[in-house]
Design a binder for these strands. Structure first.
Length: 425
RNA sequence: GCCCCGGUGGUGUAGCCCGGCCAGCAUAGGAGCCUGUCGAGCUCCAGACCCGGGUUCGAAUCCCGGCCGGGGCGCCA
């Protein structure tokens, strides 16, 4: 068997000098590890000089022969180098250890995120996210959903109750979107009947929790000519199932690195409805007054119920009180609305449902919410020119990943997370 | 926005309740030893009590203020 010449580059994870005549250099490259073996008398003397005092996390590249019978444990490849190039020498004192011999706390990790990202278990999160998103978008693409890009800068009032970030826009004030919802609806009126948008949203909420960041991504679907909100739910659950299936197919190694045992969920997901939700909560010791919205603890209770009684980690909650939802949702029998949340392992993943498409009803609901119809006219006026029944949902990608991988903090699922006190790096 | 908790070498921690020997340990760093290491091992060295005020003979430890951070709730993805 001929000895193969390869070129490998990476970050110096460790250097082991064993006596004066033997040196091992362990390189890290993504999730792979390569070992360079330098024996005096076997490799050129200048390679020893070149790698003398090589600080951890320096970047080097080496060319050499693969050791055919693999001797190195814990390395994907062992190489006897013939040439080495040192690209970059790292400082000797590092703000955190990518080898993770000493664990750092999350704030320290985020302050030094590029170093933190070098860890295979951190990279795994983002490799899994890429597969998840691709699984979901492929599923949508294959079914004729068109990917559209809706604006992030909005000149007027956006939607939902969340605070917006104001931006100076030449001589006027504009806002960063909290959700691409309203423009998805306008695209429906524009004649697209199946569409999705994958993008960033911003919320200026000073939330100090493990499930909020001020900048997050969503995959948001909107579809026309639906019979009711359940058509939307069927799309959502299949999209999620397809995403998780893709992760299971493509990312076994990453799941193993993270120690996550992931199974593809069964569809359809169970559906609970108001007002029955109040009875379920009551049976588990949580008293929510009839007609009122539930709280964070309720979400966890409902998820325990769904897991124990319905055998599902995903559960839809439908027919929320209209009073708890924005003006554009379609009402069902009063006081309920065709408004659906999807919960997963105790956390809200998405909101959606059927939207109100009748202009006069839409405007009267605006008034009912105490809003000035004028302020939303930029949006509502287009409903006078022909609007089909439609609905959709927006699913938080970081939240789905956080719950799916059991990360415990949504910041883990964002590459460079933004929260009320962090905008750098 | 309201509430709770916490700040000790580069990193992660012990000590704090019950004030008092050179502030302990791990890892990273420095100097050496070791020809197959692989979380390498061994010897030695260097490195810290967030800031300000107070109590006290004496403060990392108790009290007050500030700054910074984490978390819970609310709101939401």
């Amino acid at each position: 068997m001929a000895e193969e010449i390869v070129r490998v580059g990476g970050w110096v994870a460790e250097v082991h000098d064993v006596g004066r005549r033997l040196r091992f250099i362990l390189l890290r490259r993504g999730e792979e590890r390569y070992q360079l073996t330098l024996k005096r008398g076997v490799v050129a003397e200048d390679l020893f000089r070149l790698t003398e005092d090589l600080p951890q996390e320096s970047v080097i590249e080496a060319e050499g022969r693969i050791v055919s019978e693999k001797v190195a444990r814990g390395a994907d490849l062992e190489i006897v180098p013939e040439r080495i190039v040192v690209h970059s020498l790292a400082d000797r004192k590092l703000p955190l250890d990518p080898n993770w011999k000493v664990k750092a706390l999350l704030p320290t990790r985020l302050d030094n995120r590029p170093l933190d990202l070098r860890r295979p278990e951190v990279q795994a999160i983002f490799r899994i996210t890429a597969s998840l998103v691709r699984g979901m978008t492929d599923w949508l693409d294959e079914r004729g959903f068109v990917r559209l890009f809706t604006p992030a800068i909005i000149g007027g009032y956006s939607e939902s109750g969340a605070e917006t970030f104001r931006v100076r826009y030449f001589d006027q004030t504009a806002y960063l979107r909290q959700d691409p919802q309203l423009h998805r609806q306008l695209a429906i009126i524009g004649g697209f009947d199946k569409l999705y948008d994958l993008g960033t949203n911003w919320r200026a909420e000073p939330s100090h929790t493990t499930r909020h960041i001020t900048e997050f991504r969503s995959i948001a679907v909107e579809m026309a000519f639906i019979r009711d909100e359940r058509d939307v739910m069927r799309v959502e659950e299949e999209m999620i199932r397809a995403g998780i299936e893709r992760v299971v197919e493509e990312r076994q190694r990453e799941l193993e690195i993270l120690g996550v045992d992931l199974t593809v969920p069964r569809t359809p997901f169970p559906e609970l409805r108001f007002p029955e939700v109040y009875d379920i909560l009551k049976s588990r010791g949580k008293d929510i007054p009839y007609g009122e919205d539930y709280d964070t603890e309720s979400e966890r209770i409902i998820c325990s119920y769904a897991r124990e009684e319905l055998g599902s980690e995903f559960v839809f909650v439908n027919r929320f009180p209209f009073s708890a939802k924005p003006f554009y949702v379609m009402k069902a029998d009063p006081p309920w609305a065709r408004s659906v949340d999807l919960l997963y392992r105790g956390l809200e993943l998405s909101s959606g449902g059927q939207r109100e498409h009748r202009h006069e009803v839409l405007v009267s609901q605006l008034v009912e919410k105490g809003m000035n119809p004028k302020s939303m006219e930029w949006f509502t006026k287009f409903f006078r020119y022909g609007a089909p029944p439609h609905g959709g949902f927006a699913l938080g990608i970081e939240r789905l990943i956080t719950q799916m991988l059991g990360l415990g903090n949504i910041r883990e699922a964002a590459l460079f997370p933004r929260d009320p006190s962090r905008v750098l790096p």
